[in-house]
């Protein structure tokens, strides 16, 4: 909710300034926006479907069963794969992670789950490639995946 309000707030203020300064340029801004939107539309629709399929099959209950209460390295790997594949809003992800931590999942597993969840986006990859280019998108995701493990291992050692 707050995010939506912030976004609309920023844009409305920007638009008011833009309209006062130059109508023609404002119109051009809308044209650019519309073009970029149309170009991203197929990927956006694809992503929506992909998110639905993955979350419909991998419900929070299934995820907690998979990551489970074991603290072995295998569950850390599983957590990283689930984190990279799924796209879950933080309002659902953090309570889920918290409850898993309480039932006995290790700090490393939970940390890797959260970091991959927020930083690695398999479902949004088609869109990211479309907008930012193949190399940029793939490098960003791969490095984020690797760094998630490093962060998680350090966190496991400290906490």
């Amino acid at each position: 909710m707050i995010t939506t309000i912030t976004m609309y707030g920023i844009v409305i203020i920007g638009l008011i300034f833009s309209l006062i300064k130059d109508r023609q340029k404002t119109l051009k801004a809308f044209k650019v926006a519309w073009k970029a939107f149309l170009n991203s539309l197929p990927s956006l629709i694809g992503i929506l479907g992909l998110v639905g399929l993955i979350l419909g099959i991998l419900s929070p209950a299934t995820i907690s069963r998979l990551i489970g209460s074991e603290s072995g390295f295998l569950s850390t790997i599983t957590a990283s794969v689930i984190g990279a594949l799924t796209y879950i809003p933080s309002l659902i992800a953090f309570p889920l992670a918290g409850s898993l931590l309480r039932v006995g999942a290790s700090v490393t597993t939970i940390s890797v789950f959260i970091t991959t969840l927020v930083m690695v986006g398999f479902v949004t990859l088609p869109l990211e490639i479309k907008i930012l280019g193949k190399k940029f998108a793939i490098l960003r995701n791969v490095f984020s995946f690797i760094i998630a493990f490093i962060i998680a291992i350090i966190m496991g050692l400290i906490l």
């Binding site: 801004a29 044209k31 998110v51």
Partner: peptide, 28 residues
């Protein structure tokens, strides 16, 4: 799965208009 897709569809299409307009404003 359809329900999840529908929910995300709503989220996306509320948040996307300002995103692309902001992009256009930055551009010009």
């Amino acid at each position: 799965s359809s329900e999840v897709t529908w929910n995300y569809f709503k989220e996306m299409f509320i948040i996307l208009p300002p995103v692309f307009i902001l992009m256009g404003l930055i551009e010009v």
